[in-house]
Every structure is written in C-alpha cells, then in structure tokens.
Design a protein around this nucleic acid. Structure first.
Lengths: 236, 236
DNA sequence: AAGTGGTCTAGACCACGCG
DNA sequence: GCGTGGTCTAGACCACTTT
C-alpha cells in the first residue's frame, strides 16, 4: 500500500516544495550531492527522483550548473492560442463571465462521466479569453463537486484554473483527451465572440485528468481561429 | 576521445533490430542480463539504454516477464480521426490521389522553411482518407528532395508514409507542430470532400520533425469533422 | 580549482510472473 | 524455484560551468 520507495519520497518532497513556491521558478534546487546527504542515500537514487521530476516537467537539468525549476509545460498539450506560450507573446486576458456555481451536468459534455461523477452535483464556470480586447475563445468548464469544493472567483490565478489547482490544492493536470470539430457558429456563440451566425468556428471538447483521484475537468470551447489559429506541439 | 556513450550504442543497436523486424512487435527483446553479457557492461548502463527506448515508445517493460516490443505510439500526437486508434475502429482507407513528384515549394506551407529546404526542390504528394467509402480528410504533403529520394507509390505501407519511413528508411517521427483553423470550404476542397462550398471544415497545418537531420514533412490537411471529429490525447 | 550534472562499474536484495 | 525487471549502495572518472 504505502509506496516505500526512497526515490519516490525524494521526488515528492521536492515536488511539494516547488508547488508551494519554496523553490520558485527560475531558481536551482539543491545539488544532487546535497540531496544525497539530506536523505542519506546515493546519487543513483537521487538521480532517479530527479529524472521523474524531469519527465513531469518540473525541472530542467543544466550540466555544470544544476537543476532549475521551470514553468510546468503548458498544461500538458492543452491546445494554445498561437504565440500564447511561444516566442511572440500575445497578451491573453481572461475574464470570468460566469462565476463557479453548483448546477447539473450539461449533456453537451462529450465524454462519458464516471459513476461517481454522475452521482455528484457539478460545478460550472465560464470564461472568455481575449486578445487585444477582442474575444477569441469562449470556454465552459465543469467538474464534480464531490471531488473539489466550489472554487472562489478570487482564487483564479491570472485567470488560470490550472495554476490555482497547482498552487492552492497541489493538484496537477496529468493528461487530456480532446475532440475537435469545425462548426458554424450558433447565434449565442457568435454574439459572445463578436461574429456572425454561421461563421466557421472551432469547437473543442476536452477532458483533463488530474492527479487527484476522481477529479476530471471537462471543457467545451468555441474558438474564433480566423485571426489567431490554435496551435500545439509535440516532441519525444 | 571516446566518441560515444555506451548506453547510446546499446540503445541504437536494439532500435535498429526493432525497426528491421529482427525483434518483431509483440515479442520480447533479450533480458537485461543477456544484454549486459553481450556488451560487457552492467545493468545500470543497459537500463539507461532501455529507458530511452521506453521514452521513445519502442518497448514496454513488464516486471517479471521482460521488455516487449510495442507498436510505436501513434506517430507522436498526430491528430487522429476519432476511433482510428481507439477502441471503436473505423476502417480508414487511404488513396494516393497525387503520386509523389518533384515540384516547387507551395507558399501555403504555414511554417518557415530552413535554408537548406529553400535551396532544395521538394517532393509533393496528396492523399485522401476515407471512412465507409466517404472522403473525410484531404491531405497534401511536402518534403525536401535533398533530404530523401522520391518515394515510390508502391512503397507506401498501408497508405502510411510514416510506416514507410520507419520500415524502409529507419527514420522515425520525433515531434510535430500544428496549427488549426476552422474555415469555410473552398470550391475545390468541397468537391474533394463531397461538401458544399462554404461548409465549415478544419484546416490543419503541420510540420513533422524526423530523426533524419534536415528531413521535415510538411502537411496541409482539410478535414470534414461533421461526422468524425478529430481527436487527440496526451498523458504524462 | 571547485562544484555541478553525466556516465559507468560491480555488486546486492526485492517484487513479480510463471512453470 | 528461477528468471525477469525494480530498487539501491558505494564508489569512480568525465564533461561542463563558474570562480
């Protein structure tokens, strides 16, 4: 039951300190030798722990210098607006257009809910992402109330739900499934995005899995891609 | 000057044998101890080599059994038609509508070409992907002639360019960048996909990076997502 | 020169799958 | 019981960055 692996303990110890901001982004964590001493172990074990943190995207290793805390990579493959996390940065502003509230599950959700989720009420909120003061993405989100309390509007960190999860609840996004469709805009969505009814927009249904058992975040996004395409990257 | 790392040699040795089919998919590669003996080294080094192959998606480890050769994961995040690599499998048939031929670079390519690519002529081909005999995706592809000879139509393995690259040339796809836009169908594209002009379709611009230096594959895809959405998944 | 991470050795014991 | 991969020890030397 208890994972008594030494490298796992080290890995979690450091991860928690990163999440809590004790090792802030951009700084270096203690050297491998220092960690060895602290945990009374050998470099092989410490390196295994750091390798895991590397895979999870918490640190980057720099030979001759140390292991640097990095911004966790873009919520793991979340499709991003072009430039959002790239070199040419557009200023993306997020507005909370519907504050988190308890409601029923919306049948529009494209993924099957778990038994536990079906039994639970859900929390819903809506955001609009703007670039240059023009709305580009309309985003609806749901999660199970049984898995996480209703988040307060003031808790959104820079409009980001994931940053809130990570920094306030120590929960990380572990993976995502997405479905993409090109559709004509409905009257309602068109109004929200400043478009005409029938204009081509991108509809994304997404399910994010988190490190907290039972907590999935479901999303329903409408994107105006005419000016800012949606982009994503992969590497191995 | 020791030219290369031991684990790297082992890694490449095994990778080549997998690519060549000496270790077919589904079989087990030699045990760690056997590899140790063969290369006169220790398990630490062998395990480092196997860890790399694991990351690259060539093998899966099974405790108590061995390391099994697996189907390389879905071209690394290539967006796939729903069900294509999932449980409910649609039969996707690929038709080569334009055979590979030497031509000029098309300005529609959404990514900047490298200096070497600009100097080179390029190879172009076009395919249509059908489900239930109905066209769903129209796909244009380009690559630099200087980086790879003109591939023969008969060399396409199950309509797949990537399988051809892997099995015939031992080249693997290492990563991809994509841009997605929702657009109204042009007359030409509409005709190819059996749609009306102006219908909403998904336009994907993609650049695949390969393990062969200088070889990138550029793609320009038009997808009818009304019936079969495009899907992708991530995990960490 | 000192400190960091990268590679490697030569062992050990454990957990798991299977006959 | 045996072979497999998983974890771990206690060292060594190298390549790289900084002082």
């Amino acid at each position: 039951m208890k994972s008594s692996k030494k490298y796992y303990k080290i890995q979690n110890f450091i991860k928690k300190r990163i999440q809590k901001g004790i090792y802030p982004v951009g700084t270096y964590i203690p050297s491998e030798n220092e960690i060895c001493e602290q945990f009374q172990t050998t470099r092989t074990t410490v390196r295994k722990a750091l390798d895991e943190l590397l895979k999870e995207g918490f640190i980057a290793k720099e030979q001759g210098k140390g292991s640097k805390v990095i911004e966790r990579r873009k919520s793991l493959g979340l499709l991003t607006v072009k430039g959002f996390s790239g070199a040419i940065d557009y200023a993306v502003e997020t507005t909370l257009t519907e504050k988190p509230k308890i409601t029923q599950w919306d049948p529009i959700i494209a993924f099957p809910l778990t038994k536990e989720e079906k039994k639970s009420k859900c929390v819903y909120f809506q955001r609009v992402r703007c670039i240059n003061n023009r709305p580009v993405v309309l985003e609806n989100n749901w999660y199970a109330l049984d898995a996480l309390e209703v988040i307060k509007p003031s808790d959104f960190i820079e409009g980001s739900f994931f940053k809130t999860l990570s920094q306030k609840y120590l929960i990380e996004v572990m993976g995502a499934d997405q479905e993409l469709r090109s559709i004509p805009a409905s009257k309602k969505v068109a109004k929200n995005l400043g478009l005409k009814e029938g204009d081509s927009i991108l509809h994304i249904s997404v399910r994010f899995q988190t490190s907290k058992p039972g907590l999935n975040l479901y999303g329903d996004l409408y994107c105006n891609t005419s000016e800012y395409p949606i982009r994503n990257s992969y590497y191995s």
